[in-house]
Computed example of a mutant assay.
Amino acid sequence: MARRDYEDDPSAPAANSLVPAASAVVVGEDGRVLLQRRTDNGMWALPGGRMELGESLADCAIRETYEETGIVVEVTGIVGTYTNPGHVFAYDDGEVSQEFSICLLARPTGGSLRTSDESFEVRWFAPQETDGLAMVPSIRKRLDDWRAGHGPAIR
């Protein structure tokens, strides 16, 4: 399903849903971070997605990371909360969801890199290598917050 991100854009459609979601900054022992290149917008992103009924937020991040990248993770902390009402995701089925995402910190415990129907490239990057990557502003904020290391961000 195609998705378009709008952040603080006056031409954005009005939200008609609020969906809890989790993303993960997965950091390997060597300090590199795991990113995927999304099939829906071609941008680099953290693994993550919608929380399902019956799962915890940590379980959501673990499941989404495995589904999208093939890497099994353990959640170790929180990067921040991201709930900007001016950030919406418009889907081709007419849903427009307001951002409600918690970004967690995780470490890999197994698995191997692979793509999925949501990702056409998955790679590990040194933090400074992420600077020039094409990504939506909300993902850039999460990476910047993690790199700044000032504790959980509330946005």
Results as ranks from 00 to 15, higher is better:
Asp93Arg: 04
Gly111Val: 03
Phe120Ser: 14
Val96Lys: 02
Met135Phe: 08
Val122Met: 03
Arg114Ser: 03
Phe125Gly: 02
Phe89Cys: 10
Arg107Tyr: 05
Ile102Glu: 12
Glu118Thr: 12
Leu105Thr: 11
Ala106Ser: 08
Thr115Glu: 05
Ser119Tyr: 07
Asp131Met: 10
Thr130Glu: 02
Met135Gln: 13
Phe89Leu: 14
Gly86Glu: 12
Leu133Glu: 09
Gln128Trp: 15
Glu118Pro: 00
Gly86Met: 10
Ile102Met: 11
Met135Glu: 08
Ile102Cys: 12
Cys103Met: 12
Ala90Gly: 04
Gln128Asn: 12
Val122Pro: 03
Asp93Lys: 06
Ala106Trp: 10
Arg114Ala: 00
Cys103Val: 15
Gly110Asp: 02
Arg107Phe: 04
Gly110His: 05
Ala134Leu: 14
Thr115His: 01
Thr115Tyr: 05
Pro127Gly: 00
Gly94Glu: 12
Pro108Ser: 11
Ser116Trp: 08
Glu99Met: 07
Ser116Asp: 05
Asp92Pro: 00
Phe100Arg: 14
Met135Ala: 12
Leu104Gly: 03
Phe89His: 15
Cys103Gly: 11
Phe120Glu: 15
Arg123Gly: 05
Leu104Trp: 01
Leu113Trp: 01
Ser101Val: 13
Tyr91Trp: 06
Pro85Thr: 08
Ala134Trp: 10
Ser116Arg: 05
Glu118Gln: 14
Ser119Arg: 11
Gly132Asp: 14
His87Ala: 12
Glu121Gln: 15
Ala126Thr: 09
Asp92Met: 02
Leu105Ala: 13
Ser112Met: 14
Asp92Asn: 00
Asp93Leu: 04
Gly86His: 08
Val96Ser: 03
Ser101Trp: 05
Cys103Glu: 13
Arg107Thr: 07
Phe100Gly: 05
Asp117Ala: 12
Gly94Tyr: 10
Arg114Lys: 04
Phe125Ala: 00
Ser97Trp: 01
Arg114Gln: 01
His87Val: 07
Val122Lys: 03
Thr130Trp: 03
Leu113Lys: 00
Pro127Gln: 02
Pro85Cys: 03
His87Ile: 10
Ala134Ile: 09
Tyr91Pro: 06
Ala134Asn: 12
Ser112Asn: 11
Val122Glu: 07
Ser116Gly: 06
Ala90Gln: 07
Pro108Gly: 09
Ala126Arg: 15
Asp131Arg: 13
